[in-house]
Design a protein around this nucleic acid. Structure first.
Length: 358
DNA sequence: GTCCAGCCGC
DNA sequence: GCGGCCGGAC
């Protein structure tokens, strides 16, 4: 089964080769009620072990990109899959967080916020009765025939194109690439950049993405034999691939959850809920990467994957950026930010952005 | 006109 | 830490 969860503007964009909507008994996904893992016929060089949480393992995250100017931070995060399901909060003692190099700006500790399970469950319920754009976008059959290497490359291309792009637009672009046999590293490398550009139009930032696509194809071809990189770090080194997409690709492409895919919705909602505020200070995280690190400190690993579609849909329908619908939110009693949003955004320019912070 | 939204260059 | 990248929604 080949499935693209084409995204709404902000989301995680795709899920190829696995069923994603187990918690969203909506429309065409209604038949899918249980978590279905991809048949793991392919080897997974990206991970030493499986990511099914069956055994404790040491994961090493190396953050690059944004930090490379200052210093490369290595954050070793030992994650033991929390024992209790959802019955009890995860044992915080199980999560050992060690900063290797001095870090100026990372969260120090993470305690599970009060009532997080109730909140999560409440959001799940709201999500199951609400139709978010992220839910309604179709799944694709095209590409199911692709062998693993090409499928992974398609995952990478899809996620690159999908950012800042409407679902159906991204879908169309992928379809056109597919129809023109331009969904492999080899073919894209050989293709004219103008051709790529015209085929992916009108995805957001198509010029830049066409350029990046060519570069990525070349890199994949020369360094990875036409496959995509199998580590977070190597994915991050690709042009146009940042933390959000890298985690998505690790998750979907390699079925290897290395971290939470944090987009603007997850970032915003986590902060509104007080899930990532720093103890001692009332400070919120200031960017998605900080939010990701803070969330990973306490959120049970089995939630890392589903948290994105959950909060994205919630953010599209209830907890919207502007004028969130706290009145219809079933977890507002647990939300420190409920009903605190400025009612009239009206005239605020870049200078006076104070009114709209959250 | 303003905002979206992830990444990148500055 | 801000603005540019794109087109579309508003």
């Amino acid at each position: 089964m080949f499935q693209i969860r084409v995204s709404s503007p902000s989301t995680v964009a795709l899920a190829i080769g696995r069923i994603q909507f187990n918690r969203m008994p909506k429309t065409r996904f209604s038949a899918i009620q249980s978590k279905t893992e991809i048949p793991t016929s392919e080897p997974n060089p990206g991970s030493e072990g499986s990511n099914d949480g069956s055994a404790p393992e040491l994961r090493v995250f190396t953050r690059r990109k944004r930090l490379k100017k200052t210093e490369v931070q290595k954050i070793h995060l030992e994650v033991k899959p929390h024992a209790p399901k959802l019955a009890a909060p995860p044992d915080i003692e199980e999560f050992t967080y060690t900063k290797v190099s001095a870090s100026t700006n990372s969260i120090d500790t993470g305690k599970p916020p009060a009532n997080w399970e109730k909140v999560l469950e409440g959001i799940r319920k709201m999500r199951s009765s609400e139709d978010a754009p992220v839910d309604s976008m179709g799944c694709e059959k095209a590409g199911s025939a692709l062998p693993p290497k090409e499928r992974r490359f398609a995952v990478l291309v899809s996620s690159l194109l999908s950012s800042q792009t409407k679902d159906h637009v991204n879908h169309g672009a992928i379809q056109r690439l597919l129809q023109n046999n331009l969904l492999s590293a080899d073919s894209i490398d050989k293709a004219d950049e103008a051709t790529i550009k015209s085929l992916i139009y009108p995805v957001g930032f198509y010029t830049r993405k066409a350029t990046n696509l060519k570069k990525i194809a070349k890199i994949c071809l020369t360094k990875y034999d036409g496959d995509i990189p199998s580590s977070l770090d190597e994915l991050l080194s690709l042009p146009g691939i940042g933390p959000k997409m890298a985690h998505l690709v690790m998750n979907v492409g390699w079925n290897n959850v290395q971290g939470i895919c944090v987009d603007t919705h997850v970032h915003r909602i986590s902060n509104r809920l007080g899930w990532v505020s720093r103890p001692g200070r009332k400070q919120k995280t200031s960017n998605p990467e900080e939010t990701r690190e803070a969330l990973q400190l306490w959120l049970p690993k089995e939630e890392w994957d589903p948290i994105n579609p959950l909060l994205v849909g919630f953010g599209q329908t209830v907890c919207t950026p502007l004028r969130p619908r706290c009145g219809m939110c079933s977890v507002s009693e647990f939300c420190p930010s409920a009903f605190k949003e400025a009612s009239s955004p009206s005239s605020k320019s870049k200078k006076s952005g104070l009114s709209k912070k959250l």
